[in-house]
Write a protein that binds this DNA or RNA. Sequence first.
DNA 1: AAAAACTTTTGTCATTTGGCAAATAGTGAT
DNA 2: ATCACTATTTGCCAAATGACAAAAGTTTTT
Lengths: 188, 188
Amino acid sequence: MDHLINYLLEFGQLNQQQIDLIKRKVNVSELKKGEYFSEAGKIPKQVAFIEEGILRVCYYNSEGDEITKYFVDENNFAVDINSFNQKIPSSEYVQAVTDCTLLVFATESLNDLSATIIQWDGIINKITEKALVDKVNKLSPMLAEDATTRYLNFLEKFPNLANRIPLSYLASYLGITQSSLSRIRRSI
Amino acid sequence: MDHLINYLLEFGQLNQQQIDLIKRKVNVSELKKGEYFSEAGKIPKQVAFIEEGILRVCYYNSEGDEITKYFVDENNFAVDINSFNQKIPSSEYVQAVTDCTLLVFATESLNDLSATIIQWDGIINKITEKALVDKVNKLSPMLAEDATTRYLNFLEKFPNLANRIPLSYLASYLGITQSSLSRIRRSI
DNA sequence: AAAAACTTTTGTCATTTGGCAAATAGTGAT
DNA sequence: ATCACTATTTGCCAAATGACAAAAGTTTTT
């Protein structure tokens, strides 16, 4: 729980009373490897802070291949942005790559916090914006790099992720086949 | 100017008095093809609404190649997100791809509007978030597609952009060389 | 109009990556 | 330990893309 509070405090000030309120609004939720945080048909739990574990956001492309859009790891928020923005039900789903411990804010809790804590919306906006900017900045250069460089950069940015993620997930994130990724690994 | 107001109204309500205030805070600015909207050294004009023309956001990668991160065209906001977020001076710059007419909000004007119009921050946040989500959703699938598909999708999404953009800019956006793009064009 | 500067196309060949299928390794259940 | 299941590696060849250089086409300047 402390990680969550510290994370929030990076984006705005909160007094002790507000912190206590936030703690009361959070539900701890466990996910086993392979289980879904959000999927078509279930009511989406809108926002989760990952205390432990790795999630991935993925979808099926027009060729029917399963694509991993990105990974989210410890001490970050995972938001189903599409449902967050009240859009049409997303074709994306969020799956646990490893066993996870999540701190989940239900929709009503978010509304309560938004109504009670004056800084709340500002903090959430900053977090959302930073997360999105980071994603754009990560994705954009990848297009201009070859597969080996993309893999090496991934290793550098997430040194402790690569060995906890199945090869196929990582390959689809990097935009290559798993055989290619396997060969790239060998050549290093 | 009407395009700007209509755009803002998509994201929140504004009364006539507020609309007039916004109009007074905007400066019309012309850029010739090739000129820079923001570059290292100059004070960044933080936000521009493109009334006419195309901008591109670009940078030099570690190999020294100039990469076009994305294009921004008519009736969209161009924000130097990095300076917007008070980060260290960005290595990115924003350049006019064609002659442009921009509606520019100076930093102080933005602050004034934020202080005066209660809905302002909310509107700007929604615009920012939507722009970023769109970019992620556009970039992400590109990694899994081959160059021809990326080009065809670009044509589909921006039918009237491709013929106004130099081949080299578009190639670097698509993550391929200009000779490859030239060949892809021929093959269609 | 000619020259200069820049952009796009094309040629040739090397390298990267994909597709498919089989072999190997790893994991979990009984 | 064995079996079934899944994940990873490898082999082979085809297709896509890059690198480099030259040619052709455009635009701008003089």
